[in-house]
């Protein structure tokens, strides 16, 4: 196959070249012969030494890649459906940057799992579309709650964070119940799907939070409720001297 200027390797080579030059520029601002923190420095102990060496190597390698690209074209790379990939990446991004920092970890996990299982396992539009719809609605409500959190302090002394968190959590609980209802009503293999989407995240949260004592990234209504139950149960055992 003929090598073209639009070879993906060439595109990557240009990106790498820009990266190498910019990292070299940043590294050149580090102390080379000047003193740092009261300690006299020399070029051979400078913190810039390795970054400059790496930038130089990357520069040479990217030029080599530019002039000797493989014969592949864009179509040869990235197997599988592009729409599926975008779906997975969007779901991951919304889960990590949007749901995890703002709502209860269990609730966000259930929504995320339902979205992916609905899209890739249940396949049928009758199930995956409502699940996707619920996910988007919940995300929008979380967005509104976040807006409230930032706007309400501007007016009087409203308890903005509590109110916003409550709005987000209540929306999520409704979302999770809606998701559960969708799976229950619309799909025949509900036991398996329920196990993965509802029960396994619960087990994960219990395992990490109460056995490994790892606090969850965000602890909302469900984890606080679990905590309350766990405290009550352990106080029962402590009371009996077990």
């Amino acid at each position: 196959m003929k090598k073209t200027t639009s070879s993906p390797d060439r595109f990557i080579a240009i990106l790498l070249l820009i990266f190498a030059i910019s990292s070299a520029m940043v590294a050149s601002t580090y102390p080379i012969n000047e003193s740092w923190g009261g300690v006299a420095s020399a070029w051979y102990v400078s913190p810039a030494l390795l970054p400059l060496f790496i930038s130089f190597c990357l520069f040479l390698l990217s030029i080599t890649l530019f002039f000797r690209p493989s014969n592949s074209v864009w179509h040869d790379y990235f197997s599988g459906k592009a729409s599926h990939k975008i779906w997975v990446i969007c779901a991951l991004v919304s889960f990590v940057y949007f749901l995890i920092p703002n709502i209860d970890f269990y609730l966000s996990s259930v929504l995320f799992l339902s979205l992916l299982v609905g899209r890739f396992h249940l396949v049928s539009d009758a199930v995956s579309k409502p699940l996707g719809f619920i996910y988007v609605v919940v995300c929008m409500f979380v967005l509104i709650a976040l807006g409230l959190q930032h706007l309400l302090p501007l007016f009087a002394s409203a308890p903005a964070p509590t109110l916003a968190t409550n709005v987000a959590d209540i929306t999520d609980i409704i979302g999770v119940l809606g998701t559960a209802a969708c799976i229950w009503v619309l799909h025949v293999h509900k036991v398996k799907v329920f196990l993965v989407c509802v029960w396994l995240p619960l087990l994960l949260v219990i395992g990490f939070r109460f056995l490994l004592l790892v606090p969850m990234p965000t602890e909302g209504s469900v984890i606080l409720l679990l905590n309350e139950i766990f405290t009550q149960i352990s106080s029962l055992f402590v009371g009996k001297g077990i």
Binding site: L92, F112, L113, L116, V117, F120, K192, V196, L200, P201
Partner: peptide, 8 residues
């Protein structure tokens, strides 16, 4: 079925 769980 199990890959979404792996993501979590």
């Amino acid at each position: 079925l199990f890959m979404p769980l792996v993501a979590v």
